[in-house]
């Protein structure tokens, strides 16, 4: 099932499907790119940032960025 990264549940895992155009370069330096496995680590309430795990490292992303990354979520 495809979901926005910002809509993923705690502990959910998935593969990055698409990243909105100009964001692609911005997040590439942090290790997020299409076909990468990603795991939701923490989600801060009230429009706070999300923390995801990619390649053993935690990365926090603003909600604005997380909304523009589409992930194929595994059951």
């Amino acid at each position: 099932m495809e979901k926005k990264l910002s809509e993923m549940k705690y502990g959910a895992q998935g593969i990055v499907k698409s990243i909105k155009g100009d964001l692609r370069n911005k997040v590439a330096g942090m290790g997020i790119r299409v076909n990468k496995r990603i795991r939701m680590a923490t989600k801060q309430p009230i429009k706070g940032p999300v923390v995801v795990t990619v390649d053993e490292s935690n990365i926090s992303l603003g909600l604005g960025i997380a909304e523009n990354i589409i992930v194929e979520v595994e059951k």
């Binding site: 330096g29 290790g31 390649d55 053993e56």
Partner: peptide, 13 residues
């Protein structure tokens, strides 16, 4: 070395 992929991105840049 434990996060080599991210590092290589910068190296390539």
């Amino acid at each position: 070395s434990t996060k080599i992929e991210r590092g290589l991105y910068l190296a390539l840049e």
